[in-house]
Amino acid sequence: MRWNDLYIAGVGTYLPEQVETVDEAIAAGRYTEEKKAMNGYRELRVAAPGETGPVMAAIAGRQAVERSGLSHDEFGLTVHASLSHQGLDLWTPASYVQANTVGGSGPAFEVKQGCNGFMAAVDLAAAYVGSHKDFSAALVTAGDAFHLPYFDRWCSEDQNVNGDGAGAFVLSNKAGFARVRAIYSYADSTLEQMSRGFQEWTTMPFPNGETLQLNRSMEDYLQNSDVDLDEMVAKIAGGVQHSLKQVLHEAEIELADARFFLHQQLAETIAQYGICGLLGVKRESTTYDWAKQYSMVGTADLALGLDHVLAERDPQPGDLVVMQSSGAGYVWTAAVVEILERPSWV
């Protein structure tokens, strides 16, 4: 979707104080030297008791709203994205975020789209802001905390390491420090079973009290004789390439025109071959090496990356930022953002 009147007016982030390093996890028997060498993560942040995903998202959201300079009555939508358990069962974390940020009577929606949740939420909020002219802004947040015994941040997945934290954007149809030129989302539902495997359905979450092992579903899927591994990899690579190609076309730019490329904080091998190698992205244009100190922060990586670019990478008016994310399902979202001015808070 090409946009002419969609802006980012504020960015907010929150990271817990406690730091846990890869070496500490190895010493505790929760990680291995082999995974350290393969995946490249250095450390991450660990949420304190009570710092649930929505609690952290509300902190990041308040910062984004304050930085935007917009009043609460200008907001007509709140969208919250997450991966992890949100602190309680069968409740509405998006409404909690709304109540603790902008309030009001606009709707609050929750997006669950795996690792792509935040950018999917941005895409949905953009359409809402663009079509509803009775208000001028939307708050989009993401917040996750990964705790035992439900989830082991170090070994519930072979490649990803999961840190805690949150991020937020304020979208506006009037003004902002950056203009969103285009957003494009693309899905390949033939890959849905890849993250489900062939397991039997359960009647409740966490039925046996065991720590989640996301690799189990993948291994189950790959062991099926009907699965073509090469075809699966080609589809995933194709989705990344297609979503990027389409958003660049809609924004009327080439990849080389962008000064910054923001992607999720994936394992080193995936970032090197599945992003930089596959797409021709220059690693120095990313925030990847900087963000190794946080690992993969749920769905909030791109908000953290943009906040870092604004604060530390000296963006100039006219600079273009490409954002790319993906999530199981399988869904990809890409966006092109143009910096209009240095934001007032930098």
Rank of each mutant, 00 (worst) to 15 (best):
W3G: 02
D5M: 07
G12K: 02
P16S: 05
E17Q: 03
V19Q: 07
V22C: 02
E24H: 06
A25C: 09
A25S: 06
G29E: 01
T32S: 14
K35R: 14
Y41V: 05
L44K: 10
A47W: 01
A48I: 07
E51N: 03
A57E: 04
G61T: 00
G61E: 00
V65S: 03
S71F: 11
H72D: 15
F75M: 10
F75T: 05
G76I: 02
T78W: 02
V79R: 10
L83Q: 13
S84R: 01
L88M: 15
L88S: 15
D89L: 12
L90K: 13
L90R: 12
W91K: 04
W91F: 12
Y96Q: 02
Q98A: 11
G104Q: 06
F109A: 14
V111N: 13
G117T: 04
A126M: 01
V129L: 10
V129P: 00
V129Y: 05
G130D: 13
S131Y: 14
D134A: 04
D134F: 14
S136K: 10
S136F: 02
S136C: 08
A137I: 05
A138Q: 00
A138G: 02
V140Y: 02
A142M: 03
G143T: 08
A145W: 11
F146A: 06
P149G: 04
P149N: 10
F151T: 03
W154K: 05
Q159P: 04
S172C: 06
N173C: 08
N173M: 06
A175Q: 11
A175C: 11
F177D: 09
V180C: 07
R181C: 15
A182K: 05
I183P: 03
Y184N: 12
S185I: 06
S185H: 11
L191E: 00
E192R: 11
M194E: 06
F198G: 09
Q199V: 12
T202A: 09
T203W: 15
P207F: 07
E210R: 07
E210H: 05
T211D: 04
S217L: 09
S217Q: 10
D228L: 00
E231T: 06
V233Q: 00
V233N: 00
A234R: 00
A237I: 08
G239C: 04
Q241V: 15
Q241I: 11
L244P: 01
H249Y: 12
A251M: 14
A256F: 03
R259P: 14
F261M: 14
Q265I: 12
L266G: 09
L266Q: 03
A267K: 03
E268K: 12
E268H: 07
E268G: 00
T269C: 13
A271F: 15
I275A: 14
L279Q: 00
G280L: 05
V281M: 01
V281T: 05
K282F: 09
E284N: 13
T287H: 08
Y288I: 08
S295Q: 09
M296F: 08
T299H: 06
D301Q: 04
A303E: 02
V309R: 00
V309K: 01
L310W: 01
A311W: 02
E312P: 00
E312G: 01
R313S: 10
R313M: 15
V321N: 10
V321I: 13
Q324D: 08
S325G: 13
A328C: 07
A328I: 11
Y330R: 04
T333A: 06
A334P: 03
L340G: 10
S344L: 07
V346Y: 04
V346W: 04
